[in-house]
């Protein structure tokens, strides 16, 4: 089944990153980190769709490579939100 190996890896990375950022932001009272956590969360479904699209087009993708891509993508989304002044 398409996405059976890659989507769970992307989900785990997304859950871990967004939960940690939200928790750290709330504990230290940092709106910027809280925003980064929420933005990272909102980016994950998009990453699911991109993952499925890429996998359906290019065949199987290595889970490790996907995990790195998700982490970089979420961090980039967070940074973009900060630069755009969503905070």
């Amino acid at each position: 089944m398409i996405g059976r190996q890659t989507v769970p890896v992307a989900a785990r990375a997304g859950v871990l990153l967004s939960w940690l950022l939200c928790a750290l932001g709330l504990v230290f009272g940092s709106p910027a980190v809280v925003t980064a956590g929420v933005v990272a969360l909102l980016a994950v479904p998009v990453i699911f769709l991109v993952t499925l699209l890429v996998e359906s087009l290019a065949g199987r993708i290595l889970p490790t490579a996907m995990a790195v891509a998700v982490l970089l993508g979420s961090l980039a989304a967070s940074l973009t939100a900060k630069l755009l002044g969503v905070t």
Partner: peptide
């Protein structure tokens, strides 16, 4: 709701339950 989906989808995909 987004968090519910993100938190559960990985497990459901791993079990092969999602009709993509």
């Amino acid at each position: 709701v987004t968090a519910t989906s993100v938190g559960a989808t990985g497990r459901y995909f791993a079990k092969g339950l999602v009709e993509v």
